[in-house]
Simulated assay, not measured.
Amino acid sequence: MSKILAFTNQKGGVGKTTSTANIGAGLARAGHRVVLVDLDPQANLTHGLGLADPEHNVYGALLHEYRLKAYPLQENLALVAGAPALSGFEKVKGDELDREFLLKDLLEPIQQRCDYILLDCPPALGLITLNAYACATALYIPLEAQLYATDGLDKVMEMVARVQRRVNPTLTVGGIFFTRFDGRKVLRRETAETIRDKYPGLVLEQTIRETIALGEAPHLGQDIFSYAPTSAGAADYAALVQEILTR
């Protein structure tokens, strides 16, 4: 049975999609069978990994228009495409019985065929995110160490507590990790220490430095290991994958 890891933050622009893509690619390179699922209506994960105009996507599968399809990207790595229509998911399914378990039901048939399923959640705590939390084994929260960084984090942690009580009692927070991190800046270091003190044991040791290559790779439809395997970004994500595997 595969582990389902949800990458989430109520705040946008924190490197959530970049992290989902590169951690997924890193796990695949380590020999694990990985399926990525793009749950963000912006579909940046889909476009950033070079999948243009896919015929099947997760929204159509959730509506039972067709079976779930994972498009192969490279050895051990496949992607369930996202779609802008996901923005209407709550309106379409909001009144349905057991609406928070629709994604869990959809993913069950593929759980025996892969080791990890990684969910790229939208930057909002709506029905799509609730579905992700309801089926996830663990949540990983990318975060920038800057002013107001804890605002979105606190909201995520509040929702996690509610989901644990009512929907998914086995859900855990796998870890919080810092993206676009610059240890030379005092404010970044101080903010990181504040969050480590507030959430002891949850903040991962590995940080992701801001590098040009991490920004360039999605424009060419590639993960960082394919685009710039010797870059600082590749080294950081490789180390982060190893830390996740040992938790």
Rank of each mutant, 00 (worst) to 15 (best):
L130V: 14
A85C: 00
Y71T: 15
I117Y: 01
G88Q: 06
P123A: 07
Q74S: 15
L107Y: 06
L119Q: 08
E75M: 09
T129M: 11
E96W: 03
P123Q: 03
A85L: 04
G82V: 08
D98G: 04
Q111P: 00
G126L: 10
A134I: 10
C114E: 08
C114Q: 07
L127I: 02
E75F: 02
A81R: 11
L125F: 09
G126C: 03
L73R: 10
P84W: 12
I117D: 01
L97V: 15
K104E: 13
L79D: 03
F101T: 14
T129N: 12
Y116Q: 12
V92A: 11
Y71M: 02
P109V: 10
Q111F: 03
G82W: 07
C121M: 15
D105Y: 08
I110G: 01
A85T: 11
A134W: 09
P109A: 05
L73Y: 05
A81D: 00
L119M: 02
E108P: 00
L125Q: 07
P109K: 00
L102V: 09
L107E: 04
Q111R: 08
P84L: 14
L102K: 13
L119H: 03
D120C: 12
K104H: 15
K91H: 11
L102Y: 07
L77H: 07
A124I: 07
C114T: 15
K104N: 09
K93E: 10
K91W: 11
I117A: 05
R113G: 10
E96D: 12
G82L: 06
D120A: 13
L103G: 04
F101G: 03
L107A: 07
I110K: 04
Y71D: 09
L106N: 01
I128H: 02
E90H: 09
Y133L: 15
L107N: 04
G82N: 08
A83D: 15
N131W: 01
R99I: 03
A78F: 12
Q74F: 13
C135D: 03
N131F: 07
I110F: 01
V92G: 00
L130R: 03
F101R: 09
L106G: 03
Q74T: 11
L130H: 10
E75D: 13
K91S: 12
Y71N: 05
G126S: 12
G82A: 08
D98T: 06
D105S: 10
P122M: 09
G94D: 06
A124P: 01
G82C: 07
C121N: 14
Y133T: 00
Q74L: 06
K93W: 06
L106R: 05
E100L: 02
V92Y: 01
I128E: 06
P123M: 05
V92E: 15
E96N: 02
A132G: 15
D98K: 05
P122A: 15
P84S: 13
L77I: 14
D115K: 09
A78K: 01
D115H: 12
Y71F: 07
D95G: 02
L127P: 01
G82I: 08
D120Q: 11
E90N: 09
L86T: 08
F101W: 07
Y116W: 14
L127A: 03
C135G: 06
V80R: 00
G88M: 09
P72G: 04
S87D: 14
A132T: 10
